[in-house]
Design a protein around this nucleic acid. Sequence first.
DNA 1: TCAATTCAGTTCCTTTTTCAGACTTACTGA
DNA 2: TCAGTAAGTCTGAAAAAGGAACTGAATTGA
Lengths: 154, 154
Amino acid sequence: MKWDTLDEEPCSLSRTIAVVGDRWTLLILRECFLRVRRFEGFQSSLQITRHLLSERLKKLVRFGILRRVPYSESPKRCEYILTQKGLDLYPIIMAMVHWGDTHMGDERGRPLLHEHKTCGRLFDPVMVCSECGETLHAKQVHVHAGPGRRDATG
Amino acid sequence: MKWDTLDEEPCSLSRTIAVVGDRWTLLILRECFLRVRRFEGFQSSLQITRHLLSERLKKLVRFGILRRVPYSESPKRCEYILTQKGLDLYPIIMAMVHWGDTHMGDERGRPLLHEHKTCGRLFDPVMVCSECGETLHAKQVHVHAGPGRRDATG
DNA sequence: TCAATTCAGTTCCTTTTTCAGACTTACTGA
DNA sequence: TCAGTAAGTCTGAAAAAGGAACTGAATTGA
């Protein structure tokens, strides 16, 4: 497997993994969704080495997940803001949080609770079928090769 | 950050990352959902080194994602089968696939199409609120500290 | 019966990443 | 002028991943 061309594989999961498939990137995105925007902010809340943080932020900008927006001209300072492409990663993060809540919890209870402003209630994220609205389960899904691949896995 | 105790952090995302937060693990899980069960099967379809595959499978078994089930007594041979805990990872994989379909596609079209056996149609996974059923967007969600944490991030 | 093959790993050595922490550059404010 | 802040870069050591051959138990096939 060549990690540097993973984003060209005929598999949408591989392409996503090319972008967010490492620990630090996912944790950086968590901070983004918690409204952290600045280098020092990420660094101090994650205790990531500055070297890796710098590299990961560059990668996220390169892939169009974050936008580098100046907030001061002198000295030059920038914030990292989620683009729409980045905001669309929310279901991935929420699916992971929900799985953690369900299967990796301890006696202390959930670390975070999520409130849906639209309906005002505390909720869990649920994945449903876009066509019939029913909750999705792995065993009820059948996979077909699409136009982007008429042979392998993915 | 100490990766070896990530599963004890007061953050459900960290705990999930502790289990599935690396590239190979996610790709191995993709194969599991595509009905691959055996060592050689994973190895040949992923081109992962046998060493890493062995280690990752052990980790997935240790965390209760896969079960090691003998299918031959002599010679001793085992298959790796998803547990319910493992099957519950499906929304994470599907969320990643969907994001890849949406944002990392190329001119060839989607690599895979998904059919919901229950309704018989090709679908996309959609994440909704468990309480009101509306589609979730990052900006409509407010986060509160839960019992498992009355201070930090996650 | 004896060589070749299969499967599920393990071992060994090299290359690549990551880590920890100091250093740099460009300012600001006292 | 001196301390502090923000956003990085650099360096050397440690950890993880990659590549490929080896093991062991059994099976096939000539």
